[in-house]
Each structure stands twice: as C-alpha cells, then as structure tokens.
C-alpha cells in the first residue's frame, strides 16, 4: 500500500514535468535561437537575444511599467485583502455571508470579462465612471489616457484582492480565540490585539500571499491587453504584454522566449527576496507546525 502514494505522486510529477518544467527548459532553448513561426530557417545565435534585450529601450520601459504595475497592485491587494479579511473575521457581524459573497464575486469572473467590464466603465465618452464623476460636478476624465497606470492597477486590484482576502481570512480563523480572550483580560485594545496577535500570526500566510499575488501580477497580461494595449506611449507596456507582442504578434519566438526566461528568473528572484525579507524561519516555522 505504501507504493500507491508514490505512484500517484510520480504521475503528478509527470504531468507537472510535461506542462510546466519542459516548457521552461524549452523556452530557454528557444531563447538561444533566431527562430520565428514564419521564418524558413532556424539559426543558433547563442546569447545574442540576451544582448539584444539588454540594449532594447522598450525592454527597460517594460521593466519600469511592470515595477509600477506590480508594486501598486501588490500593495493595494494585500492591504485591501487584509482590511476586508479583518472585517469579515469580526465576530457577530450582521450580513457577513452577503458581504463575503459580494467580495468573492469579482474573483469568479475571468480576467477577460473583468477587463471588458472596466473598459466600459473607463470609456471617456460613453463610460459609467464619467457619468458618475460628471454628476458630482467633476470634469470628465480621460481615464485610460491621463490615468492609464492607476486605471489598470485599480481594475487588477478589483479582481485580485479577493484572493488575498480569502487567504488571510482563513488564516485569521485559525488563530486560537483564547489568545484574544487573554489579551482582553490584560486590557489590550482592539488595535493592540490586531498588531500583537493577528498580524504576527499571519506571518507565514502573508509571505505566501505576497509571493502569489506578486507573481500573478507580474505574469498578468489580459487586463493590460484589453484596457490599454500597453499604451499610451508605452506607459503600461508591462513585460508580459511586451513578450506577447514579440512572440505572438511578430511571431519572433526566439526573442519572445528570451523575455519569458527573464520573467521566469525575475519570478524566482522575487520569491527568494520575499523569503529573505520574511526570514527563513517563517518557512521552517510553517513546516514544524
């Protein structure tokens, strides 16, 4: 019987290797070639694609845009998620099911649907947001022109904050009630309880949450694609968008793969950075639990 779990895990590993590990290696292999879907010849060019990348101003622009997009999105998603999770964890809150369902609703929609909804909201001539803003006496705004980056961040957060909320709320539910009761007896205020009990207890889940939402945001593409297509003036041309343009619009598989490899390396670096910032003990602590 002991063999069954091993066999099942091997099967899972096989599937993982076929659909996740192989593509990563293949992307690295492709990045060493001058290769296009509509190109007759495939030429080995070594690290040339990487040297082109390092002298490509649009690549640096995409890095800057990604940093802003990911930075803004992660900060808002984490703190908004934490705020909503805290509210939902409040005991004896009336209508908690309604609120939880409402907060979860955006996450049930696909990224494309979310993007299309926000495209209609932001439309400067026919959009709902300008109708609302106008009713308040504020001049009509060109959301996807003057406020392009904040606009895509807001749309992304509207969709993604639920993930943080769910993760943090479930972790909060696991904190023993006795801790809060003891703190109350000691005269700790609600705020003190939050900072001294809740937050430290969320250390591990926060790290996981931050890693997940950062990676999801860096790899995000659909919302930017639909809302701004990387514009105006490349202001929202995040690295996923730039990779898509090269790999699928220009069919330049070699350069597209080079960008994919760079994104992969960034993802690893970011994960390691988070682990370093939160401390390796966080991981060990979670294992020992």
């Amino acid at each position: 019987m002991k063999k069954t779990p091993i066999l099942l895990m091997l099967l899972a590993l096989l599937i993982l290797a076929a659909f996740s590990i192989y593509p990563v290696f293949n992307a690295f292999r492709l990045s060493l070639f001058d290769m296009g879907l509509l190109q007759r010849e495939v030429t080995f060019v070594g690290l040339k694609n990487y040297s082109v990348l390092l002298s490509d101003p649009l690549f640096y622009n995409s890095l800057k845009a990604t940093l802003l997009f990911a930075g803004g999105s992660v900060a808002i998603q984490y703190f908004l998620g934490l705020f909503l999770a805290t509210l939902l964890s409040t005991q004896d809150l009336k209508g908690i099911r309604f609120f939880r369902s409402s907060f979860i609703l955006p996450y049930t929609l696909s990224e494309l649907v979310v993007a299309l909804v926000w495209l209609h909201i932001y439309d400067s001539n026919f959009g709902v947001l300008n109708g609302f803003v106008n009713a308040l006496g504020v001049p009509v705004q060109r959301w996807l022109f003057d406020w392009a980056m904040p606009a895509v961040i807001v749309a992304n957060c509207w969709w993604g904050s639920t993930f943080s909320m769910l993760l943090l709320e479930s972790a909060m539910k696991g904190i023993p009630a006795e801790l809060y009761e003891a703190a109350k007896v000691d005269g700790a205020s609600g705020l003190q309880q939050f900072f001294k009990i809740t937050l430290p207890s969320l250390h591990y889940v926060s790290m996981l949450n931050l890693i997940m939402i950062t990676l999801l945001t860096i790899n995000a593409f659909g919302i930017v694609f639909v809302l701004t297509f990387g514009g105006p003036q490349n202001a929202t041309d995040v690295i996923g968008m730039y990779m898509w343009r090269n790999a699928f619009r220009f069919m330049d598989l070699g350069y597209g793969a080079t960008l994919a490899v760079v994104i992969f390396i960034f993802n690893i670096i970011i994960t390691l950075l988070y682990i370093r910032v939160f401390g390796k003990e966080t991981l060990k602590g979670s294992v020992s639990k």
Binding site: N125, R142, L144
Partner: peptide
C-alpha cells in the same frame, strides 16, 4: 482632435461619428 486619440480603440472614432460627437 482629442489628445486621447492615441489611446482610441479601433472603433472609437466611428462611435463618435455615429453619436454626433
């Protein structure tokens, strides 16, 4: 012409024409 024309969708101009804008 609106400076926003650089952020127009492929069909924004025709919508503006159709709605008398």
């Amino acid at each position: 012409v609106s400076p926003e024309c650089i952020a127009y969708e492929w069909n924004t101009a025709l919508k503006l024409m159709g709605t008398g804008q």
